Simulated scan of single mutants.
Amino acid sequence: MEIRIVRGSATAPTEMASYDAALAEAGVHNYNLTHVSSVVPADATVEFVDTAPDLGAIGEGLTVVEARATSAARPVSAALAWGREEDGPGLFYEAGGEEPADRTRERVERGLEAGRELRDWSFPDTDSAAAHAAPDGGFATAVVLAVYGEGRPIR
């Protein structure tokens, strides 16, 4: 399974419109998102692509781990960190808030370390991605998502 890391940030006149626009910047606005917790399957590859390629038909479902923050008053950031055992499973840690992107990135990196220690795993390499947005009279949203595979029909 291929897992792609995408991100987006946007402003708009309403909270939902800014979220939709941030998803559009990440390339996943035309899918129905199913959120899962943060475990990376052992057979998965993880790749940062910034914006998702075509992942299937409009309206299909995508499985995601999502970091998100929205505000009308202050700048926001979202971050996602990940690490994997060599040829094995791994973890994502996500966070978002009204803070600078570097602070949010630090929080997910600390969380990833705690998750690794909890499982007694050793990640030879870790990485992270962040997005940042500032309101301009409306709402601002920042998102970073780990997108599992491609779209699938909703049943």
Rank of each mutant, 00 (worst) to 15 (best):
E2D: 15
V6Q: 08
V6W: 05
G8F: 05
A10M: 05
T11P: 00
A12D: 11
P13I: 04
E15Y: 07
E15H: 10
M16Q: 15
M16L: 14
A17W: 00
A17L: 12
S18L: 04
S18Y: 01
Y19P: 00
Y19R: 15
A21H: 01
A24W: 06
A24S: 14
E25T: 12
G27D: 08
N30D: 15
N30M: 12
H35A: 11
V36T: 14
V36K: 13
V39M: 10
V39G: 10
V40T: 03
P41H: 02
A42E: 13
A44T: 04
A44P: 00
A52F: 05
D54T: 11
G56H: 07
G59E: 07
G61C: 09
T63W: 01
V64P: 05
V65R: 09
R68H: 12
R68Q: 13
A72R: 12
R74L: 12
R74K: 15
R74V: 09
P75K: 07
S77R: 05
S77G: 11
A79L: 05
W82H: 10
G83Q: 01
E85D: 12
P89N: 10
P89Y: 09
L91A: 11
F92P: 07
F92S: 08
A95V: 09
G96N: 10
E99F: 09
R103P: 00
R105A: 15
V108C: 05
R110N: 15
G111D: 12
L118Q: 15
R119C: 09
W121F: 13
F123G: 01
P124W: 01
P124D: 02
D125C: 00
D125W: 00
D127V: 00
D127Q: 06
A130H: 09
A131T: 07
G137P: 06
A140C: 04
A140F: 04
T141M: 04
A142M: 10
V143D: 06
V144A: 09
L145N: 07
L145I: 02
L145G: 02
A146F: 03
V147Q: 10
Y148A: 12
R152G: 12
I154D: 05
